[in-house]
């Protein structure tokens, strides 16, 4: 098996290699040893302590975040309204003589569901 010294003298003199530092195998070995030797430091409350000292997020970014949520809710509601067969529902309601109050109730309920879905989607 070729040892380290012999391998070094293959591509040039040891001095050349030492000066230029071109020895990828040694580099890889050293890098591996250095990383292997490094312990993982447990968080141990470090992160919480950093987060507690951070300044509050700027109003601008909060406004931007809520604006994008509103836009997402409006877009979701628009798509639902666009797809919803209002004409058919109304004519069916008239044919089956369903009261206006029940229709309003169903409408409000569906709006609530759509808004909740929109908010949930925007938050994700």
């Amino acid at each position: 098996m070729v040892n380290f010294e012999q391998r070094n003298t293959k591509g040039g003199t040891l001095n050349d290699v030492a000066i230029e530092g071109k020895d990828p195998q040694f580099d890889a070995w050293l890098s591996e040893q250095l990383q292997f030797d490094e312990p993982y430091l447990d968080d141990d409350g470090f992160c919480e302590s950093v987060m507690a000292k951070l300044p509050a997020p700027s109003k601008d970014s909060e406004r931007r975040a809520s604006r994008s949520q509103y836009i997402a809710v409006l877009a979701a509601s628009g798509i639902v309204a666009w797809q919803f067969p209002f004409g058919e529902v109304l004519s069916e309601a008239a044919r089956q003589s369903i009261s206006l109050y029940s229709l309003v109730g169903v409408g409000m309920l569906s709006s609530l569901v759509v808004m909740a879905g929109g908010i949930f989607a925007a938050r994700r």
Binding site: D43, F46, C47, M51, P57, S58, S61, E62, R64, A65
Partner: peptide, 20 residues
């Protein structure tokens, strides 16, 4: 952009050990 501090907490957790 969103002022999401939880996202920053994730960055802190990711780099805390190496940096310390």
């Amino acid at each position: 952009e969103d002022g999401d501090q939880r996202a920053y907490a994730q960055l802190v957790r990711r780099y805390q050990s190496q940096l310390r």
